[in-house]
Design a protein around this nucleic acid. Sequence first.
DNA 1: GCCAACGTTGGC
DNA 2: GCCAACGTTGGC
Length: 180
Amino acid sequence: VRNFRDAPRRDKRQLPITRTTIPMPRRYWLVKSEPEVFSFDDLLRSPGQATSWDGVRNYQARNFMRDDMRAGDLVLFHHSSAKPPGVAGVAEVVREAYGDPTALDPSSPGHDPKSTPAEPIWVSVELKAVERFAEPVPLAELREQPALAGMELLRRGSRLSVQPVTAAEFKVVRKLGARR
DNA sequence: GCCAACGTTGGC
DNA sequence: GCCAACGTTGGC
């Protein structure tokens, strides 16, 4: 048991509180989009090659975007329900979570009356294109990579539309994409 | 088009 | 709080 009475007096002024910025390592993500709806080339054609990543209506995916995505994070852009499905390129988070405009817009099919500007239920981030793969890396090819055995995307029945990717997984996928 | 794997909804 | 029914996702 500590004896506080006999503990040496400390002058708090000798313990300055310094403001420090702890550099956080960049994180990696994967987002899904049906290219018929919005493809990587659509992203390249967008103003500033960036877009509001809206329409996410799953709480787990929302939480990743709202709580963990940071500006500078890199994102694998996956084409789902494509022929074949595969990763089409890399994007970067350029704006952190804000209220999903489509959830707040009464005229949008994504409108959610429970979401308000003050307390948005759903969030968007802004994504900017970084690298287009000459050809998407097919899902089947990803499945052949032992290094990707644990990847969320490859899990049976994986439906999460925003998911974390490890640095190692990201590196492997990017290398496969760069080779094309 | 099929269907597995979820997530959500709503009755009780 | 349980759980069956239903809707959606998304690979194949």
